[in-house]
Design a protein around this nucleic acid. Sequence first.
DNA 1: GCGACAG
DNA 2: ATCTTGTCGC
Length: 223
Amino acid sequence: MDIRELHPWNLTPAEAIALQKELKEKLKFRPFKSSPRYIAGVDISANLFSHHVYAAAVVWDREENKVIETAFAEGDALMPYIPGLLSFRESPFILQALKQIKTKVDIVLVDGHGYAHPRRLGIASHIGLFVDVPTIGCAKKKLVGEYTELGNEKGSLSNITDKNEIIGAVFRSRTGVKPIFISPGNNIDLTSSIAVIKQTLLKYRIPEPLREAHRHSNIFRKK
DNA sequence: GCGACAG
DNA sequence: ATCTTGTCGC
């Protein structure tokens, strides 16, 4: 897929923070009408305490219920993991993997937050400024904000609020498991993001495209 | 100063 | 983020 070249990635943490505040203004949130067939999932795998990272991009076909394409990229991260700056560590490699995808995907799911970020530019939003399709952030833990505890049953949903603004949602994807954290990346709103995530859930806590991206990045790393 | 802190 | 079998709970 086509990848835009918005800016360089070799920045200091201070420069990265300034850039996030600037890029946040470019985000668009709008309803996403349609039930997408081709959904990309992206994730990174790495050895503990290593700066060498392995990226995988997969395309999940919702009609056939299977992965129909995969692409990979690896390299040395330009920045260590710093909460709030995850994107500067992972995005260069994720974008490199996405660039090799031939399928015309309808939407991209990213492992991490989108708008639910201290400066409203999590990795899913950041990546969403480099591609021409909507992006959604789906994380396994909270980064910022507050929410009321969910009911234990599948389907329980609650908003994530920060500084008096709704920034995302917490969602119980399966009964009795820890919830997932959903927020719009770019070119999609929260309501549509939740709807799309629900369409990609099969029988596990994590949406299928992201489970597969995680699995493939691990296989890639261990080869 | 203290706690929180995606991957 | 990774390692890792059995085991606890519904």
